[in-house]
Amino acid sequence: MNLFRLGGDLAHLVSIFILLQKITANKSAAGISIKTQILYSIVYVTRYIDVFTKWISLYTFVMKLIFIASSFYTVWLMHNTYKSTQNPQIDTFKIRYLIGGSIIMAAIFNHKLTFNELVWSFSIWLESVAILPQLFMLQRTGEAENITVHYIFALGIYRALYIPNWVYRWIFDQYFDYIATVAGIIQTLIYSDFFYVYYQRVMKGKKFELP
């Protein structure tokens, strides 16, 4: 473990709880893409499929359970408690293409043709594109009551810190995983596009709204 990865994981955890706090405080899920949240739940389940069979450390075990539980809770809240605040008309990104594309990428790029490795690779590729439904929704509406700049910032820190983590591990641990690294860099680029859209549509947009 290194500080980059610990910081990244904690920022990731904070981003999930910022979103949950916002939804429950506002009693609304307006402006949040349930498709992206569903994709994240799929990412965690497939990524942590061996959470009970392969022991890495207590930290890893606890964090995996928290990520799975909090993402399912978010989807559950959006689909049940705050369903009335959802507007499915604007959450229209076809996630079947993201899931299909991730399956293809996993079939091509994997470390071993075993079930666990294929599922792990699928999860890595899916995570890199999971934010796209949210990005397209934000681009269309420009409204983001619940997608706050803190959420996006925490998400960005998570992704950004993983890159120095990989550099650190490559130098000091002689550890390098090209799948995680390539998909992680793609994800970081998509997240930076997300910030740009947020800045253009929400931050600047807000200024024009004020009388």
Binding site: R5, Y175, D177
Partner: peptide, 10 residues
């Protein structure tokens, strides 16, 4: 043979 990287990251 390329050693399988242990997936110890979240």
């Amino acid at each position: 043979a390329q050693t399988l990287p242990v997936h110890d990251e979240l």
